[in-house]
Design a protein around this nucleic acid. Structure first.
Lengths: 186, 186
DNA sequence: TATCATTCCATAGTATACTAACTATTTTGC
DNA sequence: GCAAAATAGTTAGTATACTATGGAATGATA
């Protein structure tokens, strides 16, 4: 049944050899698809790596009741408190509605306080609670641990290359997207 | 206020110089934290890259009503129909409950058919509908497009290095995780 | 000053992804 | 042959992430 499908498919591909695909010079040829296998795509590799990063991080932070998603916001706030929600979204690299929901949770868990701005009624500033501040020593280094695990067996140069290339990937896709996504960490 | 916090924090770090952190040789020193900034962590870089990949892919597949999440399953099924749900989960790199929900959606959208196994009452096999099969030529190459965009400005050797290192990251984290996560693409 | 454009956050809805636990079926070991 | 263990899919619940949209406040312009 699967074999019959494959044969029928190959016949139909052969039959359309004289025609050009829209916007593409050659028709799609499954036999020659270098991306047929998931692990040949950077999309797949980044997805798997990211998921495993999150799980490894969480393993180190859940004792203190901090999820990997929460940790990402705390990291930025440990560096600088009082940011607006919008600024926080930009720093963490997430859409604003996601930040709204996340901060709600962080507030509920007693990690942050949201205070309205005194000079702009639209803005809300985010501050750490003393409890969250006290967790910095224990939790901020978690990411160093996880990065060390992730890069075991690599030279320093390879680590640098990996970061450089991943950054380029992100920039290329952002540029090509043109969807106004902002992720400035300036 | 933020400056006062910083000063107080530095004083307390200096005051605890004689004591050792639990399981760590040196107390956490924010001034020396190489991972203070998100973009210095592979976790962040992989997350951003993956998200942008998904969006770029979706831009090419949504015309045919296929989300990036659905495309991931279709890719595997274009290669091999009739897999069980469990096998599909392994190939795509997702947990089984996620696959259940995804396949429900794919079935609803008319892309797949789930059929109970004839020799094992526990198993369900997944097949493409003729419609989903007909989309292969148009949608399977999308990932090649996106990978080309992502790797613009890289040499072939750099692309190979990036894939090799990302694969190593994933393997390192899997090994260290020891959480029985299975992602075999054999 | 009035109007329009932009900004900031919030809401609503949906998709994606996981963990924990459950049910039914099959396999294994005695 | 039977009980225990393993397997396959499902359900329930929750977190994460996005798009589209709305309301209020502020900034820009005429």
């Amino acid at each position: 049944m699967w074999d019959r499908y494959r044969l029928a498919h190959e016949v139909s591909i052969a039959g359309s050899r004289g025609r050009r695909d829209k916007g593409r010079m050659n028709p799609y040829d499954p036999g020659k698809d270098p991306f047929a296998h998931p692990s040949s795509s950077l999309g797949y590799l980044t997805r798997i790596a990211f998921r495993r990063f999150s799980r490894a991080l969480e393993k180190r932070t859940l004792e203190q009741g901090v999820s990997s998603g929460q940790w990402r916001f705390l990291r930025v706030l440990w560096q600088e408190e009082g940011l607006t929600q919008r600024e926080l979204s930009l720093r963490v690299g997430m859409r604003e509605p996601t930040t709204v929901v996340a901060l709600r949770g962080l507030e509920k868990s007693g990690f942050v306080e949201r205070r309205p701005s005194t000079d702009d009624r639209r803005k809300v500033h985010v501050y750490l609670t003393p409890h969250a501040r006290s967790l910095r020593g224990a939790l901020a280094p978690a990411i160093a641990d996880v990065n060390a695990v992730a890069t075991a067996g690599m030279t320093d140069a390879e680590v640098r290359t990996l970061k450089r290339l991943l950054t380029l990937v992100g920039e290329n896709l952002l540029k090509a997207g043109g969807d106004g996504e902002a992720t400035t960490e300036a």
